[in-house]
């Protein structure tokens, strides 16, 4: 049997609003995933290192400060620089339509804006692993 999906829920930057991150971390856990939550004020580097160390499949960034473009880019590019290609990056937070496209262009797999129902995130992550070979994106 394939191991459980491992997901890192991370709070990059200085934003301290962790209500959403904690709720979603718990929803992932209740859906049977292994969840690692970083806590607040993490630099992109810390997040990348944690993701590698914990051998996660998915990195979920939660950003409500408007700094999502810069911070997501640093995480995605940092992973690339380290030759890490087996991890999917998703982003959630106060992100409007304009920026969804910008984030996807950077290499973020999916974006969950305000008001996204929690099951839409859980379904999305589970959907990445429908075949047993790991991430399909």
């Amino acid at each position: 049997m394939r191991r459980k999906i491992r997901i890192l829920v991370a709070k990059p930057g200085l934003d301290g609003h962790d209500r959403g991150a904690k709720v979603i971390a718990r929803a992932f856990r209740d859906a049977g995933m292994e969840v690692i939550y970083t806590g607040l004020h993490q630099s992109p580097e810390q997040i990348i290192n944690a993701a590698i160390q914990e051998d996660v499949d998915v990195i979920g960034l939660s950003i409500l400060s408007g700094a999502h473009i810069g911070l997501s880019r640093k995480v995605v590019e940092g992973l690339r620089k380290k030759g890490v290609t087996d991890k999917v990056v998703i982003v959630g937070g106060t992100i409007d339509e304009r920026d969804v496209q910008r984030l996807k262009a950077i290499g973020v797999a999916e974006v969950f804006g305000p008001g996204s129902p929690i099951d839409s995130l859980v379904n999305y992550v589970q959907g990445l692993f429908v075949n047993d070979r790991g991430p399909t994106v």
Partner: peptide
Amino acid sequence: LAEDEVGR
């Protein structure tokens, strides 16, 4: 650490 957050 402030780069993306200044004046936001």
